[in-house]
């Protein structure tokens, strides 16, 4: 059993107690709702500023966030070569009930949570360029990750570990990688402007 496994047993027992909350979590745990919301916010950052200098800064922020999502996914793939422990629903009866009520079984390893990794990577990338958008994305990322915990899909250590990987990867991408790969982002933006998409 991973550390803090009792937390999963405790939280998943509440599934079924408040139907309205379960309906909300069923929507949040979904594979499409929050990822699309995050993408629409990033699209809004890409297009939506009246000042061209500030808009370019936000577009670089979005590029950085997208690269961070890719890089953090690659880190998760490497970690997934080793299976640390099974999913909560494979070990705990209450977690299995929760999973069946709210979501469906997943084939990939429990640790780290891919959902937490990519959503926190996107949120950190956005936060480094636009604080308000970043805070909104952090809230969405937290809801998505915690909904997976509530649904018995992940242990708490899985989502905490995934969030840490996402944040760290995004910080390294923005602060270390992006300055070093110039002029590639500048040329990419120039090409995008030539095509009227930036």
């Amino acid at each position: 059993m991973p550390p803090g496994a009792q937390m999963s047993a405790w939280v998943t027992q509440f599934v079924g107690s408040v139907p309205a909350f379960d309906d909300f979590m069923r929507l949040m745990v979904n594979d499409f709702f929050i990822p699309v919301t995050i993408c629409l916010i990033l699209l809004g950052l890409w297009v939506g500023h009246p000042d061209p200098t500030r808009r370019e800064h936000l577009q670089r922020t979005v590029i950085s966030a997208c690269i961070a999502i890719g890089a953090s996914s690659a880190v998760v793939e490497l970690i997934n070569l080793h299976q640390f422990w099974p999913r909560p629903y494979e070990l705990l009866h209450s977690a299995n009930q929760a999973m069946q009520a709210l979501h469906y079984p997943s084939l990939d390893p429990s640790f780290p949570s891919n959902v937490a990794t990519i959503s926190f990577a996107a949120a950190t990338g956005a936060w480094l360029g636009h604080r308000k958008a970043g805070i909104i994305l952090y809230v969405l990322a937290s809801i998505w990750a915690l909904s997976r915990f509530y649904a018995g899909m992940h242990f708490f250590v899985d989502i905490a570990g995934g969030a840490a990987i996402g944040v760290l990867t995004s910080l390294i991408t923005t602060k270390v990688l992006m300055p070093r790969i110039e002029p590639i982002p500048t040329l990419a933006l120039r090409l995008a402007r030539f095509l009227y998409i930036a």
């Binding site: 499409f32 993408c39 629409l40 699209l43 809004g44 297009v47 939506g48 500023h49 009246p50």
Partner: peptide, 26 residues
């Protein structure tokens, strides 16, 4: 369906962003 969902959502987002940024041509 997912493609349509993203496309319609993106279209709405672009209209909001165009209004914010003063992009009359969009």
């Amino acid at each position: 369906e997912y493609f349509s969902f993203v496309a319609i959502g993106s279209l709405g987002t672009i209209q909001i962003a165009a209004a914010c940024a003063g992009l009359k041509g969009l």
